[in-house]
Amino acid sequence: MALPYRDRVASLIRRHGEAAGMEGAKETRRAFVDRIELAPASESDGLTIDLHGALAALLRLATGGEGTDAN
């Protein structure tokens, strides 16, 4: 799982440095997120944010969270 995403992130970083690559960088970022759900937080006035997709799985792995699925 890590190698394909490492390559995609490296490509994303390169594209951000090039004016011609910005549109492709946007598409790469979008590919990492399937959906974002916002809901009122039950214990405060804020929001609960649920992130779904490859970015959620990568963040879960990076923080030692359980599960590696993309949701």
Rank of each mutant, 00 (worst) to 15 (best):
Leu58Met: 05
Ala20Leu: 07
Glu37Val: 10
Ala62Ser: 12
Leu58Pro: 02
Gly17Met: 14
Glu43Ala: 04
Asp50Glu: 10
Leu47Glu: 14
Ser11Arg: 15
Pro40Asn: 09
Met1Tyr: 01
Ser11Cys: 06
Leu58Thr: 02
Thr63Pro: 01
Ser11Lys: 15
Phe32Gly: 07
Val33Asn: 15
Ala56His: 00
Gly53Ile: 01
Arg30Cys: 00
Ala70Arg: 11
Arg14Tyr: 05
Ala39Asn: 03
Gly67Gln: 10
Ala54Ile: 08
Ala2Arg: 10
Ala39Leu: 08
Arg29Glu: 15
Arg29Asn: 10
Gly21Ser: 11
Leu59Arg: 02
Asp69His: 12
Ile49Ser: 10
Leu58His: 02
Ala39Ile: 09
Met1Asp: 15
Asp69Ser: 07
Ala2Lys: 10
Gly46Met: 06
Met22Cys: 09
Pro4Ala: 10
Asp34Val: 07
Pro40Arg: 09
Pro40Lys: 14
Asp50His: 06
Glu23His: 13
Arg35Gly: 11
Ala39Met: 06
His16Ile: 05
Thr28Glu: 14
Ala57Phe: 03
His16Met: 12
Asp34Glu: 14
Asp50Arg: 11
Glu66Lys: 11
Arg35Asp: 11
Arg14Cys: 09
Gly64Glu: 06
Tyr5Glu: 13
Ala54Leu: 02
Leu55Pro: 00
Asn71Cys: 13
Gly46Arg: 02
Glu43Gly: 02
Ser11Pro: 01
Glu43Phe: 07
Ser42Val: 12
Arg60Lys: 06
Met22Ile: 11
Leu51His: 06
Arg15Gln: 13
Leu12Thr: 13
Ser44Cys: 08
Glu18Thr: 15
Ala19Ser: 07
Phe32Asp: 03
Ala62Glu: 04
Ile49Tyr: 03
Glu18Pro: 03
Glu37Pro: 00
Glu23Ile: 12
Ile13Leu: 12
Arg29Leu: 15
Ala62Asp: 05
His16Gly: 11
